[in-house]
Amino acid sequence: NLYFQGLKYMVPGARVTRGLDWKWRDQDGSPQGEGTVTGELHNGWIDVTWDAGGSNSYRMGAEGKFDLKLAP
């Protein structure tokens, strides 16, 4: 699974964008943008601060869902 392989790169400072299971509307800005991981992966959740200004926790394994992917 590509998403599980990418988890080791989901570290503080990593750049991310919305992924396969995104369901959080425009939390990442409008139009959709990139963000920066600000915390360690914990119980399948990870913290992100978006360039647009907001921050929140997103699923990276929790509930079998992956809200994020590494930015290109």
Rank of each mutant, 00 (worst) to 15 (best):
N1G: 10
N1T: 09
N1H: 14
L2F: 11
Y3G: 15
F4V: 11
F4K: 13
F4M: 12
G6C: 15
G6D: 15
G6F: 15
L7P: 07
L7A: 09
L7V: 11
K8G: 12
K8D: 14
K8A: 11
Y9P: 07
Y9M: 09
Y9G: 08
Y9Q: 09
V11K: 12
P12Y: 10
P12Q: 09
P12R: 10
P12F: 10
P12T: 10
G13E: 03
G13L: 04
G13A: 03
A14Q: 09
A14I: 10
R15F: 03
R15V: 03
R15Q: 01
V16K: 00
T17R: 13
T17S: 11
R18P: 08
R18Q: 06
G19M: 06
G19I: 07
L20V: 13
D21H: 11
W22K: 04
W22H: 04
W22I: 05
W22F: 06
W22C: 06
K23Y: 06
R25L: 15
R25P: 09
R25S: 14
R25C: 15
D26V: 05
D26A: 07
D28R: 03
G29M: 06
G29Y: 05
G29W: 05
G29R: 05
S30D: 14
S30K: 12
S30M: 12
P31H: 07
P31V: 09
P31D: 09
Q32N: 14
Q32T: 11
Q32E: 10
Q32G: 14
G33V: 05
G33E: 06
G33F: 06
E34F: 14
G35E: 00
G35Q: 00
G35R: 00
T36I: 08
T36R: 07
V37M: 02
V37P: 00
V37K: 00
T38V: 12
G39Q: 07
G39F: 04
G39A: 09
G39L: 04
G39I: 04
E40T: 13
E40I: 13
L41W: 13
H42E: 11
N43T: 06
N43Y: 10
G44I: 02
G44N: 02
W45T: 02
W45R: 03
I46L: 11
I46Q: 01
I46C: 05
D47Q: 15
V48N: 00
V48R: 00
V48I: 06
T49Y: 08
T49D: 09
T49K: 13
T49R: 11
T49L: 11
W50V: 00
W50H: 00
D51R: 02
D51E: 04
D51A: 04
A52R: 10
A52S: 11
G53K: 02
G54Q: 11
G54Y: 10
G54K: 08
G54A: 08
S55E: 11
S55T: 15
S55I: 12
N56L: 05
N56D: 09
S57R: 14
S57P: 05
Y58H: 03
R59V: 01
R59M: 02
R59G: 03
R59T: 01
M60R: 00
M60P: 01
M60Y: 11
G61Y: 03
G61H: 00
G61D: 01
A62C: 08
A62M: 04
A62L: 04
A62W: 12
A62V: 06
E63M: 09
G64P: 00
G64M: 09
G64W: 07
K65D: 02
K65E: 04
K65Y: 07
K65Q: 07
K65V: 04
D67E: 09
D67G: 01
D67L: 02
D67K: 01
L68V: 07
L68T: 00
L68G: 00
K69E: 13
K69Y: 14
K69P: 00
A71L: 12
A71R: 08
A71V: 14
P72C: 15
P72G: 12
